[in-house]
Design a binder for these strands. Structure first.
Lengths: 207, 207
DNA sequence: GTTCATTTGTAGCGTCCGCTACAAACAGTC
DNA sequence: GACTGTTTGTAGCGGACGCTACAAATGAAC
């Protein structure tokens, strides 16, 4: 991954490397959560001062939302794509959950998923952040649902499968895994959980 | 449920009703979470002033831990007992999860479980609170595990059942349900999820 | 009725928070 | 080298936080 080269066209003192700073902010938000991550701590990690942060990102909330977008793109987009691409639904779901385990334990400190955990128990003041994350969490369920519905029409799942309930259950499991990860569960422990979790998928109908 | 009558033995001005105040504090912590619930907000709900709160409960953190104990006793003890008491493991697990759905949606506002959610993303200062809750969350898995092991020795589950993994998966599901509840899922939605969740239990072995 | 232990309400402490005014530092333009 | 536009670092604002000093208020003991 190469940073886009912005060869400094404008006048004035050159700005800090925005991409690097965003990456470091993501790390702080991920490990600490949205509110516990203070602007002072973010600035220290980003190696800039508050005025630079506010000039470049607007506010702590906007910086967080940019970090979330970056996080989704870097860590989850590929996993959701594989879920859609793998032809067999059982393989696809199993693969997705193993991807998830890898992502959730990819940081040094126990963290879980930024979208699921970073802004729980957030003050009412930053309700926009909460709403945006809630929408992202709902997206997860929708992706599961779309994949399951395709599996039913492909006759990989029984026709009477409650795809809504099953999608919600898989999403619940995914979100629960974040809590386990934050509580310090190891990659092995999470793997044993997902092995059980994927048994929620009904067997393929008899052919 | 009657409040214990403490007939005011000591000298001095009589103290406010501690039990009522604790109940109201629980409500605030439950609906808002640990850190978003400010001492000012707690005092307003408890109808006392800060010095009274600190004289009676010590600190915000200690008040919270007392509220958690009260919460566990009032809302969850019966459910865990039923899990242990019901003879058939499939019935017991199903019953427990339906109890859980009822508890998680028992408040007017979307909340989830105090133990699981109220102190996620808590500042490092109150690490004791986090550790205590983490221990409580682990207890849930242990109760599942004990029930599953009994079911295996009762030949209600296959002998080769991965009871550790299954207990962890059930606990993950339970914790995930709290997140769904906090995101506003209705009782019906949660019920459809647990119907799927309990399919993680293997069928009884052939007799 | 006086005494005295206890709780109460007021008022505010110190601290950290997100955020910003301001002037010095810098890098291109001419 | 003077000018100009941008970013930088310092230093601090207003406000919310958890918590507490203090004196007035209360009610049992005598």
């Amino acid at each position: 991954m190469t940073t886009t080269i912005a060869p400094h066209r404008s006048k004035g003192r050159p700005r800090f490397d925005r991409a690097v700073a965003l990456e470091r902010a993501l790390g702080v938000f991920w490990r600490r959560g949205y509110e516990p991550a203070s602007v002072a701590e973010l600035c220290a990690a980003m190696e800039i001062n508050p005025p630079s942060l506010y000039a470049a990102f607007g506010s702590k909330a906007q910086l967080f939302m940019e970090a979330v977008e970056h996080y989704e793109r870097i860590y989850w987009d590929a996993a959701w794509e594989r879920l859609a691409d793998v032809a067999d639904v059982h393989e696809a779901i199993a693969g997705f959950f193993h991807d998830a385990v890898r992502i959730l334990t990819s940081q040094d400190a126990p963290c879980g998923c930024l979208v699921i955990l970073a802004a729980t128990n957030v003050s009412a003041e930053s309700q926009e952040v909460n709403d945006a994350l809630k929408a992202l969490r709902k997206e997860g369920r929708d992706w599961f649902l779309a994949r399951l519905q395709r599996a039913v029409s492909d006759a990989q799942l029984p026709a009477q499968t409650d795809t809504d309930g099953l999608a919600a259950a898989l999403n619940t499991m995914l979100e629960g895994l974040s809590l386990q990860a934050r509580d310090g569960a190891s990659q092995d422990e999470l793997t044993r959980i997902v092995v059980v979790a994927i048994t929620m998928l009904p067997d393929s109908p008899r052919r």
